[in-house]
Computed example of a mutant assay.
Amino acid sequence: MKRVLALAILTFKEGIRDKALYGISILAVMMLLATILLTNLFGHELGKVMVDLCLSTIAFAGLLLTFFVNINLMAKDIDKLTIYSVLSKPISRTEYVVGKYFGLVLLVIVALSLLALFSTGIILIIKGIDPGHSFKDFSWVCYFQAFSYEIMMFVLLNAIVIFFSTITTSSFLTLIFSLSVYVTGQSIEEVVVFFKKEALIYEISSPINEFLVNYLQYVFPNLSAFDIKTFASHGKLISWEHSIALLGYSLSYSIVLLFFAALIFSRRELK
Results as ranks from 00 to 15, higher is better:
residue 24 I to Q: 05
residue 24 I to V: 13
residue 25 S to N: 11
residue 25 S to K: 07
residue 27 L to H: 03
residue 28 A to Y: 02
residue 28 A to T: 13
residue 29 V to M: 09
residue 30 M to I: 15
residue 31 M to A: 14
residue 31 M to V: 12
residue 32 L to M: 13
residue 32 L to T: 08
residue 32 L to H: 04
residue 33 L to C: 14
residue 34 A to T: 13
residue 34 A to D: 12
residue 36 I to Q: 11
residue 36 I to N: 12
residue 40 N to K: 14
residue 43 G to C: 10
residue 44 H to M: 10
residue 44 H to F: 01
residue 47 G to V: 02
residue 49 V to M: 12
residue 50 M to N: 06
residue 51 V to A: 10
residue 57 T to G: 04
residue 57 T to L: 09
residue 59 A to V: 04
residue 59 A to P: 00
residue 59 A to K: 12
residue 60 F to Y: 12
residue 62 G to S: 04
residue 62 G to C: 03
residue 67 F to V: 06
residue 67 F to P: 03
residue 68 F to R: 07
residue 68 F to M: 09
residue 69 V to T: 07
residue 69 V to A: 06
residue 69 V to G: 05
residue 69 V to M: 05
residue 70 N to A: 03
residue 71 I to S: 00
residue 71 I to R: 00
residue 76 K to C: 00
residue 78 I to C: 01
residue 79 D to P: 02
residue 81 L to R: 15
residue 82 T to Q: 13
residue 82 T to K: 12
residue 83 I to L: 06
residue 84 Y to R: 02
residue 84 Y to Q: 05
residue 87 L to T: 06
residue 87 L to M: 03
residue 90 P to V: 04
residue 91 I to D: 05
residue 91 I to Y: 04
residue 93 R to N: 00
residue 94 T to Y: 01
residue 95 E to L: 00
residue 97 V to L: 00
residue 99 G to Q: 02
residue 99 G to W: 05
residue 102 F to I: 10
residue 102 F to W: 14
residue 105 V to H: 00
residue 109 I to A: 15
residue 109 I to G: 07
residue 109 I to V: 10
residue 113 S to Y: 11
residue 115 L to C: 13
residue 115 L to H: 09
residue 116 A to C: 12
residue 116 A to Q: 04
residue 118 F to L: 12
residue 118 F to K: 11
